[in-house]
Each structure stands twice: as structure tokens, then as C-alpha cells.
């Protein structure tokens, strides 16, 4: 068996989810190769060559691969895929955008968002917002898989000295073009890999009020998340959304503040190790899954908590 992992990167560095995808690949077993496709992506390719367990790096470096548009990247992956038993990518927005396109071109039914590897052809994946776990077996010759990063341990970023092989990039078919982006720049840890996440919901009341979570997050070294209701209301940008249709997180500590606990939200955070809920409604469903629940007005409790944490050091 040999596995091609598609790296998630920004040309300079690998995104942490890549290491979890390699972790899943290691559970499948066999040679692990990693594809780094981009523009000026040599630094990322070099980083990929050091990732523990990686035997070879394939690097495609071309202007047409800028922003890794699926229309250009998918044919490249398809051209390489025939040499592999598995093609895997993290279930990030990039991975989800790319791999189904690869699957269809290979006439393969992809397997989305796996949470466990039972055998090289059998995998578990959450369905119905994580309310059921399906075990599925693929009969396709190449398994095309996206990996739920929070379900697999990351491999070490160093340990290998894998060779880098250059592969040709396909022509840009001219069907699509990157126009621009508006990235939320944040000095905080990345939401999906943070050790602590502090999330706010509709209970925060406004964008200004949402800022009271900053001090708490600073103190805990936490990433900030949100419910869909808070994003829809414009308190925070879309990439803060945790849940079935947002990001999936599983930190050591998840603090849900002014969030009721709808199943769609729980789908994105219920695998967190410790869950704290602060809500003024003692009947809020979030308390049914929280390890520690505090029934309180958040505008009183949050400053108190910040002060108490400072005291505790």
C-alpha cells in the first residue's frame, strides 16, 4: 500500500491539520508520500520532508497553482493518484473543496471526514451531526478520503529526511481565478488546533460585548469561537463558527458562554476533553453535556472569571 497525503500549507509552512492527516495515513499503513502544490512552495515542501513517517515529498511549484484552485489541482492529483492505494487530505475547506472533484474524475466515491481507520478499506465517519457513527467499506480501487483532524493524533513535525521530487503542474484551464481574500488576522492560536477554546453565542448580545471574551482568551492562551447565531448576527466573522456546518474542535478545554447547546453546535465541540458552560438559563441543553456548568449572567461571570484566573496564576 502507498498513500498520497495532500498537504495543507501556505507555501511557507504546513498547516497543523496536515500532521493529523499523516497520522491517519500511518494508521492505514504503507508508504506515505506527501504532495505540496503551490507557488513558491519550496519551504513548505522542505517542512513536509521532515514530517515523521513521510517517505517522499512530491512538489508541484507553478504560478497556475497559486491559491490551489481545485480546477487546476484536481487534474494534478488525478494524474498522480493511479500510483497509490489511498489519497488523503485533511477535512479543511480546501480538502473538502478538492477531494470530491478528484474522486469524481477517478470514478471513485470519496469518504468524507473519517474519524477512525478500522482497516485499509473500512472507516468510521460521523453522520447526522455526529449523532450517529457509520462504519463504511469502500470497494473502489483507490480510496479518496478526507480526515477529521481532531480524531487523529498529529505526527511529529520532524524526524524524517525525505527526498523532494518535483512534479509538473498542469495547465490552468482558465475556468476560474482567485480574486481576493479577507482573512481574519489573529495573533491567537488557530481554532481547530488550539488547546483551549472560548466560544460566545447569541447571549453575547453585540459585537462590542463579544470583546469581553478577549481578556479571558488572552489569559487562557485560547482561540475564540462562536455559535452560528453569533456569526449570523455579525458579532464575529464566519471563520469563528464551531459546529456541524462550521469547524470541528476538540480542545483540552472548551468554554461555551451564552450558547444554548443546539445539536448543530454540539456536533462541532462535544469531543472536547473538558467542557465548561456559562449560561443564565439553568435549563439550557448545553448543561447536559458540560462537565462544569455555571448558571450566571455572563456579563458578571466573565469578568469575575478573568479576575479569579489571574488570582490563581
Amino acid at each position: 500500500m502507498s498513500i498520497l497525503v495532500i498537504a495543507e500549507h501556505d507555501n511557507e509552512t504546513l498547516k497543523p491539520a496536515t500532521l493529523n492527516a499523516v497520522g491517519a495515513a500511518a494508521q492505514v499503513g504503507g508508504d506515505i508520500h506527501i504532495l505540496v502544490a503551490g507557488t513558491g512552495c519550496k519551504p513548505a515542501a522542505e517542512a513536509a520532508g521532515q514530517v515523521a513517517g513521510v517517505a517522499k515529498v512530491l512538489m508541484a511549484d507553478a504560478p497556475a497553482l497559486d491559491h490551489q484552485m481545485a480546477e487546476v489541482l484536481a487534474p494534478l492529483v488525478v494524474g498522480l493518484a493511479t500510483g497509490y492505494s489511498h489519497v488523503m487530505a485533511p477535512a479543511t475547506t480546501n480538502g473538502k473543496n478538492l477531494l470530491p472533484r478528484v474522486g469524481a474524475l477517478l470514478d471513485v466515491q470519496p469518504i468524507s471526514d473519517i474519524s477512525a481507520v478500522d482497516s485499509p478499506d473500512t472507516f468510521q465517519r460521523p453522520i447526522y451531526a455526529g449523532n450517529a457513527i457509520a462504519t463504511v467499506q469502500s470497494s473502489d480501487p483507490i480510496k479518496v478520503i478526507t480526515v477529521r483532524a481532531t480524531a487523529f493524533d498529529a505526527v511529529e513535525p520532524t524526524g524524517s529526511t525525505a527526498p523532494i521530487e518535483t512534479v509538473d503542474a498542469p495547465e490552468d484551464p482558465g475556468l476560474s481565478r482567485f480574486v481576493g481574500q479577507e482573512l481574519s488576522d489573529s495573533s491567537r492560536p488557530e481554532l481547530t488546533s488550539a488547546r483551549v477554546v472560548v466560544s460566545g453565542g447569541r447571549g453575547m448580545g453585540s459585537a462590542e460585548a463579544f470583546n469581553i471574551l478577549d481578556g479571558l482568551a488572552d489569559h487562557l492562551g485560547a482561540a475564540i469561537g462562536a455559535s452560528r447565531a453569533a456569526v449570523d448576527a455579525g458579532y464575529v466573522p464566519n471563520d469563528y463558527q464551531v459546529g456541524q456546518t462550521g469547524k470541528v474542535v476538540a480542545p483540552e478545554l472548551y468554554v461555551a458562554i451564552g450558547i444554548s447547546g443546539a445539536i448543530q453546535h454540539l456536533a462541532g465541540m462535544k469531543d472536547s476533553k473538558v467542557i465548561v458552560a456559562i449560561n443564565k438559563d439553568e435549563e439550557a441543553p448545553i448543561f447536559q453535556i458540560a462537565d462544569y456548568g455555571l448558571v450566571a449572567d455572563l456579563f458578571k461571570a466573565v469578568p469575575e472569571l478573568e479576575a479569579e484566573l489571574k488570582k490563581a496564576g
Binding site: 491559491h67 484552485m69 479543511t92 475547506t93 480546501n94 482558465g174 475556468l175 476560474s176 481565478r177 482567485f178 480574486v179 481576493g180 481574500q181 479577507e182 482573512l183 481574519s184 481547530t192 466573522p237 464566519n238 471563520d239 469547524k247
Partner: peptide, 13 residues
């Protein structure tokens, strides 16, 4: 498009 880092705009024919 809503992507992991924020928003991205693409042109498609």
C-alpha cells in the same frame, strides 16, 4: 466563499 481563514473571492466562468 467562506473558507477556514475567513473569506475568499473567486471568479468562475
Amino acid at each position: 466563499r467562506e473558507v477556514d481563514g475567513g473569506l475568499q473571492t473567486v471568479w468562475v466562468k
